[in-house]
Nucleic acid binder design. Structure first.
Lengths: 231, 231
DNA sequence: AACGCGATTTTTGTATACGATTAGATTTAT
DNA sequence: ATAAATCTAATCGTATACAAAAATCGCGTT
């Protein structure tokens, strides 16, 4: 399941840059709002600004990076509204995905899901938060891969990345139960063929993550600033 | 509801190129498979290849243009599989959209929907197929705008564009009932507040369009070519 | 010491140049 | 005459150069 644009084996240079940045964002090594200077990135990956720009524009279209005209690219900071919309879309799409995943269940997939859960548990057990947060997203993508629906898969990949940023910005408590146990339950329902239960569990799982966030409207800072200082 | 990337009033040059190409594709003036040479487009819009490339890459990410390495950009030709996935995704997303649209109904929106239907009927009446096909898609986008969900809106915009290409490639009969009457029924259900009926009508409408297409697997041309010539 | 203004430096936007790849035409050999 | 091979023209991939905008710093004023 290559993430490169062109499906030939050649991992073109812009995909290398894109994937490097994406991984750093997904693992929370690059935080929302971080400036992504073209020259700076170019030096790191030994590429010209032309290629860096292409990579940044791809990420911008995926909603993971924001480009401000004449100011440059930054790691995106989804607004509370965008966050809510992302979760709503995920419930909708992942609901459809699990139904398809149940239909596609097999021994092979059971093994892959098990391996995934093991990897997640391992990362959490040894306190590797960066791997844990990344693997947590990868579970959802694995289910999407099962569903054998290219469009749903690519949509979800973007949504998962945005969710990662959202959690970082809005979570209430420092630690976040990445939900390996939830993932376990969902997996059980899928492999046992219980589509209704699997769907319900998946949606509950997503809603629970959303509930752990504080998405109250901090109405666009600047506008409220006057009110706050007046009150 | 600007379609430009940067939401400031300045319609940057790459958006102009992008929108020009998109409109031509949506109105079926550019057909699937058409080569989109960088220099050629650059001369038309009086822009350098740098800007043209940016526009083409945007359209590629939206699935409306396909870029083949070292060969250039072409108007996309969705495969039957991609076509089916597009329709499935539209049913899912537009189902959610109409429910939200019903919740948002008002006199103002009733008027805008009416105007839209009038414009569609007009275009069909005077035989302006290009406008008709474009307006037909715009109806769905208007409902999405009602739903007040930025993410759903932008997803649907891509799906509608892909649908336009799909219809052109796979429709059975030359003429296609663009479905102003369907749109009328959906509108009635929305303004009357009948969410269940509106959703059912919308999904039926989409399934009917899909049913008018011939999406049988014509197995990837090249692979079958050998078989055909041997037989 | 704080603020505002202007020069300098950095960074982005766009065009263009050059090497690499592909497609098409012409030639050559079977 | 057909098919393979080679050459040529057109097109893409990438780097770089230059212009324009923004950010930074330093200076002088209050």
């Amino acid at each position: 399941m290559a993430t490169d644009t062109s499906s030939n084996g050649a991992p073109d240079r812009v995909s290398r840059i894109r994937n490097g940045l994406l991984l750093a964002i997904l693992e929370h090594r690059l935080l929302p709002g971080t400036k992504l200077g073209e020259d700076e990135i170019g030096q790191i990956y030994d590429a010209s600004r032309t290629l860096v720009r292409a990579a940044l524009q791809q990420l911008a279209h995926e909603g993971i990076v924001e480009i401000e005209k004449n100011r440059g690219a930054f790691v995106a900071s989804p607004s509370p509204r965008e966050a809510r919309e992302t979760f709503e879309a995920r419930c909708l799409i992942e609901g459809a995905i699990v139904e398809r995943a149940v239909a596609a269940r097999s021994e092979t997939w059971r093994t892959r899901l098990d391996d995934q859960l093991t990897a997640e548990a391992d990362a959490e057990a040894r306190g590797d938060h960066r791997a844990a947060i990344r693997l947590s997203g990868e579970f959802h993508l694995l289910v999407a891969e099962m569903a054998d629906h290219e469009l749903y898969y690519s949509l979800l990949r973007e949504l998962v990345a945005r969710t990662s940023l959202t959690i970082l910005l809005y979570r209430r408590h420092r630690v976040h139960f990445c939900g390996v146990d939830h993932h376990r339950l969902i997996t059980d329902a899928i492999v046992s063929g219980d589509a209704v239960r699997a769907k319900a569990l998946m949606i509950d799982h997503l809603k629970e993550i959303e509930a752990e966030l504080d998405l109250s409207e901090t109405e666009e800072n600047s506008a409220s600033l006057a009110d706050i200082l007046q009150g």
